[in-house]
Structure formats: C-alpha cells, structure tokens
Amino acid sequence: MPFDFATFVIPVWYVLVVYALFLVVFTTYTGFNLYHLLRFGAKGPGLYAILALFLVGTVLLVGLTVALLAPYDWSATISPADTLQQTSKGQFFL
C-alpha cells in the first residue's frame, strides 16, 4: 500500500510517550538522590527536613504536570498535511 501524505495522521498520545520515558529517567534519578541522602547524609532533623521537602516538592510538581496534561484530548490525531496547509495560510502563528 503506497504512502499517502494527505491521509497520514499522527496520534497525539505519541507526545505522552516522551513524557513517560522522561518520567522513568526522573524516577530513577530521584531514587538515586534519595538513596545518597539516606545512605550518606548526617542523621538529624536537617536531613529529615530536606528529605520531606524533596519528596513533597517532587509529588506536587509531578501532580501539577499531570493536572496540566490531563485536559487534553489524547485520543485525537493530527494530520501533517492539514497542519502545513493552515501554516501556509498564516493560521498557525496568529
């Protein structure tokens, strides 16, 4: 079946794959960071405050990004042909 650019569409959820891959790296490094603080940090209220700040901040920021991404219709598709046509008409950057 020959490739037809006019009918070719990209699902919007592909963008979420990039976000998911980033979250894997983010979680891994967060784990490394927590391990280092717990393993080598000097025991005391300062360390516990830093751990709490890091964990609360991380949960809040991840929650914020999820809340910002949630309203989009991720099942939609984008047609590059239509997008190029709109861009050539100057409709993309208003």
């Binding site: 990209i10 919007v12 963008v15 979420l16 990039v18 976000y19 910002l68 991404l69 989009y72 219709d73 991720w74 939609a76 984008i78 997008t83 993309f92």
Partner: peptide, 9 residues
C-alpha cells in the same frame, strides 16, 4: 490539538 500538548509536555 497537537502543539498544545507538545508545549505542555
């Protein structure tokens, strides 16, 4: 529909 999620991600 595409640029919006892209910017947000």
């Amino acid at each position: 529909p595409f640029v919006g999620p892209l910017i947000m991600v």
